[in-house]
């Protein structure tokens, strides 16, 4: 039953679950990031660089950012669905949303892995 709901025949269910899973990833990362920040307490430039030096931390942060982009896409798309009744205007806004999120994602990837 549950598996059937996640097939392509029910895109709404997939979106719903994706929104929740990305939220969970971000929630776990957020708690972890705040805790790590409070423990390490980077107070100067060198310490700040060190904070972002470990590869596992960069990958975790990237994972957070990917979840964020997916979460924001689904969330803002729902907002447009609710408040922008004109389909052609909404279509333009949806495209702008996707483009800006791709830019943020590429930007963050370059920032964290380059």
């Amino acid at each position: 039953m549950l598996i059937e709901l996640l097939t392509k025949r029910y895109p709404g269910m997939r979106a719903w679950l994706t929104q929740r899973l990305s939220a969970l990833v971000m929630a776990v990362y957020s708690v972890f990031a705040v805790t790590r920040f409070l423990i390490v307490q980077p107070s100067n430039y060198v310490a700040w660089i060190d904070f972002f030096q470990p590869l596992w931390w960069r990958i975790a942060t990237l994972l957070f950012w990917i979840s964020l982009c997916i979460h924001a896409w689904l969330g803002i798309r729902d907002v447009f669905k609710d408040y922008v009744p004109n389909p052609s205007v909404r279509d333009v806004l949806d495209k702008l949303l996707v483009v800006s999120l791709w830019i943020y994602l590429i930007w963050a990837t370059w920032l964290l892995l380059a």
């Binding site: 924001a72 969330g75 803002i76 800006s100 943020y104 963050a108 920032l111």
Partner: peptide, 16 residues
């Protein structure tokens, strides 16, 4: 949620 979305580029810029 909308506010946090709008602030994303500023956060990235500050981090960079």
């Amino acid at each position: 949620g909308c506010v946090l979305f709008l602030i994303l580029p500023v956060i990235l810029l500050l981090l960079q």
